[in-house]
Design a protein around this nucleic acid. Structure first.
Lengths: 229, 229
DNA sequence: CTCTCTTGACTTGTATGGTAGTATGCAAGA
DNA sequence: TCTTGCATACTACCATACAAGTCAAGAGAG
């Protein structure tokens, strides 16, 4: 198992709690598919690997299980949750509903500074075209976060992040399929609609944008049936 | 502190894990305001009260903290999270967005069996008018759950439950204020719109219904400023 | 009286040991 | 060949012990 960004030495020196570090590291590994759906991970194994006791590992596991990324089966073992199509579909549904209302708010009272900020994101995204999928996913996340923050919905963003985790596991597998250029175009249409005060257009743009995964999902499931429930 | 439905004796006999029992009990106590916002609860105290060790208590705390119902301050103590107006507003916002899309789906293809089920809920709700707020809140939850389940969005319902927890803490405090009869009328209008295949009307009905708390929130905050952040 | 510092009683965080439940492989028997 | 019983080696769950940070009360100096 290969988990970057954390080693036994750094654990003791950093101020952040061991649980939080383990949580972040494991979460990233799962979403990036370093830990594949269905893989078995044990408290003992992780604890030894990082030179900590089992207890903080266990607590990190609990957090990830709450998020639907791990499945803890009592007395049997802990496994990376297999991708559940209903779960991904519902996560996408929730995200579309929330972000649709967010961009409607933004379009109803477009703020010049926010528009400028968003256009800055678009420029950076265009530079990434042809680059790594990981880089684009980070830029994409920042863009959507800016939308939520611009509407003053920082707390709602937390929900989106959780939904995104489910979706991103699929999106990472489909990184050869989706066209970054097309996604940036969709982002651009969205920003244009918001800037024009076109609430209906903005809503349509974000909904269409977030429905893209619906095309990818069946393809991924066919290519990697072992990753699905 | 008064926590019903759990005692030291029953803990050992039931199959469900201690953590889950503590989680459910504490969660109910927080939402019902048996544990008031700002109240301090310690792992040791709860552990002794139920005759278990600190560890399962601690893990239940972690779950509740993830849900925003507890605030764990390292080395200082654990407190029932004070009600945060932004958090409640955003929870309401998310819930409105999700449920709006759900009822739109339902109205676009109304199913007679679902309509009948919903009308059954309405009958029971009318019987509760004048009864306890707790009873109505349970009936209300069942009604909204039926909406989500009817649209095939069981996973999305989990998100709504989490948002509800934030809102219900406020609603419980405002139980003297809101009119149950008015809420049942709103439910009825919603079901009528769904049955008629009127997606626009259904969306408007649910959005209006879920905005009710916006009137209550400032009143509650004025009456109980000590419960707010 | 006021301020500073120390002390000790808290708190949560982490480590470790013991227990009960589950999967698995093998051997004995049908 | 197939089934059954059992030993064994896991697992997560829970209890207990220790570590480390926080905070307030009180002693003592100014």
């Amino acid at each position: 198992m290969q988990l970057a960004g954390l080693d036994a030495a750094s654990l003791k020196t950093v101020r952040v709690s061991v649980v939080d570090q383990l949580y972040a590291t494991l979460r990233g590994a799962i979403i990036d598919n370093d830990l594949s759906p269905g893989a078995r991970i044990s408290e003992t194994e992780i604890a030894q690997h990082y030179g900590v006791s089992r207890q903080p590992v266990r607590e990190a596991f609990i957090k990830l299980a709450n998020e639907g990324l791990l499945e803890i089966r009592p007395q049997r073992g802990t496994f990376v949750a297999k991708i559940s199509r209903p779960a991904v579909m519902d996560a996408r549904f929730v995200r579309e509903a929330v972000e649709a209302d967010i961009v409607k708010l933004l379009a109803q009272a477009p703020e010049p500074t926010l528009i400028a900020d968003l256009r800055g994101h678009l420029v950076r995204q265009r530079e990434i075209i042809g680059g790594s999928a990981r880089d684009f996913m980070e830029a994409d996340e920042a863009f959507h976060h800016t939308l939520a923050a611009g509407a003053g919905k920082e707390n709602a963003w937390r929900v989106i992040v959780e939904m995104k985790a489910q979706m991103d596991r699929v999106r990472f597998l489909s990184s050869m399929h989706f066209s970054v250029a097309r996604l940036v175009d969709q982002h651009t249409q969205l920003v244009d609609a918001i800037a024009a005060g076109d609430a209906v257009g903005a809503e349509q743009a974000i909904r269409s944008h977030l429905r893209g995964i619906l095309q990818d999902l069946p393809i991924i499931e066919q290519e990697h049936p072992e990753y699905f429930r």
